[in-house]
Simulated assay, not measured.
Amino acid sequence: MRIFAAAVLLPFMASGALADATCKAQATDKKLAGAALASFTKKCTGDAQTACDAQATAKKLAGAAKTSFTKKCVADAVGG
């Protein structure tokens, strides 16, 4: 039951965190550069991917629709 609750709540918690600022904006605010920037960006992108996958699953998306949704979701979270 806990796993189900976490799966249902994760997209809402993650989307709230991601909506605050993109990965690039957060890195700029933290004044990261070099290896620290690369590490932060990699982790932030991974977190965004996980959150977006969970949102796609919650929306019961599959195939091309899931791929398209996830790609746009991650791009929005990372920042352009």
Rank of each mutant, 00 (worst) to 15 (best):
K31G: 06
K31I: 01
L32W: 09
L32K: 06
L32A: 05
L32H: 05
A33T: 03
G34R: 02
G34S: 06
G34Q: 04
A35R: 03
A38V: 00
A38N: 07
A38L: 04
S39M: 09
S39D: 14
F40T: 01
F40I: 00
F40Y: 14
F40L: 00
T41E: 14
T41K: 13
T41V: 08
T41A: 08
K42D: 01
K43F: 08
K43R: 14
K43L: 01
C44H: 12
C44R: 09
T45C: 00
T45Q: 01
G46Y: 05
G46D: 10
G46R: 07
D47Q: 09
A48E: 06
A48C: 04
A48R: 04
A48I: 02
A48G: 02
A48N: 07
Q49T: 03
T50F: 13
T50E: 08
T50V: 07
D53W: 04
A54S: 10
A54K: 12
Q55F: 12
Q55E: 15
Q55H: 12
Q55S: 12
Q55M: 13
A56F: 11
A56I: 02
T57C: 06
T57G: 07
T57Q: 14
T57V: 11
T57R: 13
L61F: 04
L61C: 00
A62I: 05
G63C: 05
G63D: 11
G63F: 12
G63T: 04
G63E: 11
A64K: 05
A65Q: 12
K66H: 12
T67H: 06
T67F: 09
S68K: 15
S68T: 15
F69Y: 15
F69W: 13
F69I: 04
T70M: 10
T70I: 13
K71R: 15
K71H: 15
K72C: 09
C73T: 01
C73G: 01
C73H: 10
V74R: 08
V74S: 02
V74M: 08
D76Y: 05
D76E: 08
